[in-house]
């Protein structure tokens, strides 16, 4: 059974824009982090799918996926460390309560 490329791309596109939507609307820092992760993972799918279907002779896209996963893991680790620090300081990670910098 062969699944055509477009199906994969539809999934990744939906993930990407769901991530953007979530980032802009969620008011909890962890939920925002999850939305961003969704965006980064949709990119990984894109690279792997393009490589597998369009350029099967090479490995560039797969390599990029591996690096992107590594980098996004590092970013998530830092982000969670900062969120834990905020929680320790304020006992809260809701965005509307974190407004000492009036932006």
């Amino acid at each position: 059974m062969n699944i055509p490329m477009e199906y994969y791309l539809a999934v990744s596109t939906i993930m990407m824009f769901a991530g953007i939507y979530g980032f802009l609307t969620r008011r909890n820092l962890l939920a925002m982090l999850i939305s961003v992760e969704l965006m980064l993972n949709s990119v990984d799918i894109n690279f792997a799918v393009f490589n597998r279907f369009l350029f099967p002779g090479e490995l560039e896209g797969f390599f990029f996926t591996v690096f992107a996963i590594g980098v996004s893991a590092a970013e998530t680790a830092i982000a969670i460390a900062i969120l834990i620090n905020i929680y320790r300081n304020m006992r809260n990670i809701q965005v509307e309560n974190i407004n000492e910098l009036n932006g």
Partner: peptide
Amino acid sequence: AEAGAKYILTAMFSSG
């Protein structure tokens, strides 16, 4: 800490 959270989330969003 608040600025750090804002920076890392924006940085991740922009790299996405």
